[in-house]
């Protein structure tokens, strides 16, 4: 991720009345590295493939925010919709609100932090590769199918405000074959599939930094968050389906 110069001039764009294409054409046309979008009202594909800039979005960006993003920083002062960070390769997305379904689909690198909740299929197909390992931190809770087909990276769900109730829906980690999901909760998630093993996390070294970063972003007490009980979900076997097939030479 390229650093954004703190002294760069800020370009301010009002999204009011603009279609997604008009708004994104403006973003493509500028070399500005520090951009504020005001009055975002559901425009899709903002920051698709973006790199080397910081966008602050006031309002509600539409679906597929930061798709294929490759090293930009996005700050959403509001809620985000579906498919945030689809196939994101690098960068940071910080949502000061909640986000919709399929957040971080196929994400390969970078960080997504959501202060509130995220919808179904958070982190589906997330994968790691060589030195790249994506991270998603959700403050409150996630819908069902969290980490479906997950092949790498780290998901942390903090369950803030849930008083120890499991902050995830059903079928967490269905088809999971890599990576780790940390869930701060006093009770085990419901309806876990056979491909997933669950343990009480004995140490939090892998996520301590992420939780502290989250706490700093959203003004929470990191020590209090880290003092809770965490479960860790991992794939039961690296290759969950290897015995399914038989060779048939016809």
């Amino acid at each position: 991720m390229r650093d954004v110069s703190p002294t760069a001039d800020v370009l301010s764009i009002s999204a009011e009345g603009l279609s997604f294409k008009e708004l994104n054409d403006k973003l493509r046309a500028t070399n500005a590295t520090e951009i504020v979008i005001n009055n975002a009202a559901g425009q899709r594909y903002i920051a698709a493939g973006a790199e080397g800039r910081r966008l602050t979005i006031n309002g509600t960006p539409g679906n597929a925010l930061a798709a294929y993003m490759d090293g930009a920083e996005i700050i959403v002062n509001g809620n985000a919709q579906d498919a945030v960070g689809d196939t994101m390769n690098d960068g940071r997305v910080i949502v000061h609100g909640s986000a919709g379904d399929a957040l971080g689909y196929g994400m390969r690198g970078g960080l997504i932090c959501v202060k509130g909740c995220s919808g179904y299929r958070t982190g589906i197909h997330m994968k790691q590769y060589q030195d790249k390992s994506p991270v998603i931190v959700i403050g409150e809770s996630c819908g069902s199918f969290l980490g479906e087909y997950m092949a790498g990276g780290t998901i942390v769900v903090l369950g803030i405000g849930l008083r120890g109730q499991a902050p995830v829906g059903n079928f967490t980690g269905t088809g999971m074959h890599g990576g780790e999901i940390y869930i701060r909760s006093d009770e085990e998630p419901k309806n876990l599939p056979a491909q997933v093993s669950i343990d009480t996390a004995s140490n939090l070294d892998d996520i301590r930094g992420h939780v502290r970063a989250f706490a700093q972003l959203f003004g929470c007490d990191a020590d209090e968050l880290l003092s809770g009980n965490f479960f860790v979900l991992r794939p039961n076997a690296k290759n969950p389906y290897h015995s399914l097939y038989t060779q048939y030479l016809r």
Binding site: D82, A83, D86, D101, A102, Y105, R108, R121, I124, H125, K127, Q128, Y129, K132, F145, E148, Y149, A151, G152, G175, H177, G178, K238, N239, P240, Y241, H242
Partner: peptide, 17 residues
């Protein structure tokens, strides 16, 4: 493929989005 060595590469028929 940008996936870890030795780990299955699963690409299910449904696009879940």
């Amino acid at each position: 493929r940008m996936t870890p060595e030795g780990s299955d590469a699963i690409s299910p028929a449904p696009h879940h989005d």
